[in-house]
Amino acid sequence: MYHAITRAKVRSLWRRIGAGDYLAAVETAAPDVRFRFVGDTPVSAELTGRDAFEDWFRALFARFPGLRLTLRDVVVRGWPWRTTVVVRLDVEATLADGTAYRNEAVQWLTLRWGRMTTDEVFEDTKALDEACRRQAAAS
């Protein structure tokens, strides 16, 4: 039952984030959340703390206005004191030059009593880096 409830909460959270409400994710984060967006791109990051996490999201949505994040699948394992959540996402945006950006991402989370303590995101960095270059060239 716990896993089903957690899956439903994650799905609800991603509906909000997918609609542009990234503060929903920030609200679930522990004050000392550890966040890592893997790769060597302008949006790659390794940071700690809810404020830095919010700043990263704000910059991401500023770089990609209209960014759409759609949940494809969610897997939950563990218990309330240490829950692992794995999410598959579709990532889409229309770049400033009018081209479509499409990618996939996997998110690996650790929750402790409902609070996100770690968040790691893995996305095709080659495609993401190209999208970042297009955005920079168009501005």
Rank of each mutant, 00 (worst) to 15 (best):
I17L: 14
T94F: 01
F64R: 06
K126R: 13
P65N: 13
A59W: 04
K9P: 01
F35A: 14
L71G: 04
E123I: 13
T117I: 12
P42T: 04
F64K: 09
E123H: 08
E123W: 02
D21Q: 11
A137K: 02
P42L: 01
R11S: 14
F122A: 14
Q107K: 03
W56M: 12
L69K: 05
Y2F: 15
D97S: 06
T117G: 02
L23E: 14
D51Q: 13
T28R: 15
D119Y: 09
E27C: 04
T6K: 14
M116F: 07
D73P: 08
L13S: 11
D73V: 04
A52P: 06
R82V: 11
R88C: 05
T117S: 05
T6F: 02
V74C: 09
A131M: 12
L47W: 03
F53T: 02
A136G: 04
A138P: 00
L109S: 04
R88T: 12
L23R: 15
G18A: 01
V91I: 13
T41Y: 00
K9I: 10
A93E: 04
A25G: 15
V43S: 10
P65I: 09
W113E: 11
G49N: 09
V33L: 01
V76K: 08
V76E: 03
T99Y: 03
A45N: 06
G78C: 07
T28K: 12
E104K: 10
D21P: 07
W108N: 10
T83V: 13
T117R: 00
A136E: 15
W108C: 09
D124E: 08
V85G: 05
P42D: 04
E46G: 12
E92R: 11
Q107I: 11
R82L: 14
D97F: 13
E130C: 01
A136C: 04
S12V: 10
V86E: 11
M1T: 11
